[in-house]
Nucleic acid binder design. Structure first.
Length: 194
DNA sequence: AGGAAGATCTACT
DNA sequence: GTAGATCTTCCTA
């Protein structure tokens, strides 16, 4: 793997929508015992706290969502319809929020991802929030871990810095959305979920 | 103890 | 495009 620079804690100590946009083009790294799996982040969504009816934090702090209320730069993982979804805790001091990682462009460890997913098509490995967690073997076990550590199982690092255009839309699959557009994606990238 | 909801995916028509 | 699978967590009784 190339040498990468970690995103520091203060990257995540900002409004979730800002963090969601800035995570595009960065690289998510999943370190396993034997190898590292990685992918470029190409699609994200921002979620807030009690003012956001689509958020897991909408009804207040519970055991399963408590990391969303805590330190930015940690993984928040929870399940929907049998699929684990991966978020990064992101919010300003005293607030609540997270960014959902919705799609990746696979980089390292594609063969392992194929095995984890039981599919061969590279465009069917990480092109959705539930698919990518399975491809990267992300489960509840990683809930709450610090992703700003460079020796942990999950981290986000700088990308190659290639230019791209950011698109936005309303969030996908939510029952009640906010008026703002809180989904962000790399325009024209073939690994965006739709 | 039981039911319902949910930021999904897959398979089928 | 739509239905069904499937499971964790929460809510109510």
């Amino acid at each position: 793997m190339e040498s990468y620079e970690m995103l520091p804690r203060d990257f995540y100590e900002r409004d979730p929508a800002l963090v969601a946009g800035d995570l595009l083009g960065k690289v998510l790294v999943r370190r396993m015992d034997s190898e590292a799996l990685s992918g470029k982040i190409v699609e994200t969504e921002a979620y807030y706290g009690e003012k956001d009816p689509a958020s897991r934090a909408y009804r207040g702090k519970k055991r399963f969502n408590e990391v969303m209320f805590g330190e930015p730069g940690r993984a928040f993982i929870y399940m929907v319809h049998t699929w684990w979804l991966l978020n990064v805790v992101a919010h300003r001091e005293g607030e609540v929020g997270a960014v959902l990682i919705r799609a990746l462009e696979p980089l390292d460890g594609i063969e392992q991802m194929r095995e984890n997913r039981g599919r061969s098509d590279a465009h069917d490995l990480t092109t959705g929030p539930g698919k990518l967690t399975r491809a990267l073997a992300v489960t509840k076990e990683l809930n709450g871990i610090d992703i700003t550590r460079d020796d942990g199982p999950l981290t986000v690092v700088e990308g190659t810095g290639e230019g791209f255009e950011i698109g936005s839309s309303h969030r996908i699959g939510v029952r009640r959305d906010l008026p703002q557009e809180l989904r962000f994606f790399i325009r024209g990238n073939g690994f965006v979920s739709r």
